[in-house]
């Protein structure tokens, strides 16, 4: 039996780590700062799984979330990783 990977669960939307350059252009495009974004905690299981998978610390980074089943097709959401 394969190990449980929560990132594959049906309820978990796709989480993408923005690269530093993408973060800059994203913040510039909407004219906002990181503190305006919704939050996600470093203790969140998805963040922990991503950190383990990519072998990096994600605190302070921005995560792009692609939500399916939105009335307008795909919903794109951003969360700022905090302690």
């Amino acid at each position: 039996m394969d190990k449980v990977n929560i990132l594959e669960h049906k309820l978990v939307s796709k989480h993408i780590i923005l690269s530093i350059e993408e973060e800059e252009s994203f913040l510039k495009k909407y004219n906002i700062s990181r503190n305006n974004l919704p939050l996600i905690k470093t203790s969140d299981p998805v963040i922990k799984a991503l950190e383990e998978q990519e072998n990096i610390l994600l605190k302070g980074r921005i995560i792009k979330i692609i939500r399916p089943n939105s009335p307008a097709g795909e919903g794109i959401y951003y969360r700022y990783v905090v302690e």
Binding site: H9, K10, L11, S13, I40, P45, V46, I65
Partner: peptide, 23 residues
């Protein structure tokens, strides 16, 4: 495990994270 569901939202938050809880 990819399709198992519970109606306890707090458990989903603890196991699958905030986005899954929101869904």
């Amino acid at each position: 495990y990819k399709l198992a569901m519970t109606n306890n939202i707090y458990e989903i938050y603890e196991v699958l994270g905030i986005e899954a809880a929101r869904n």
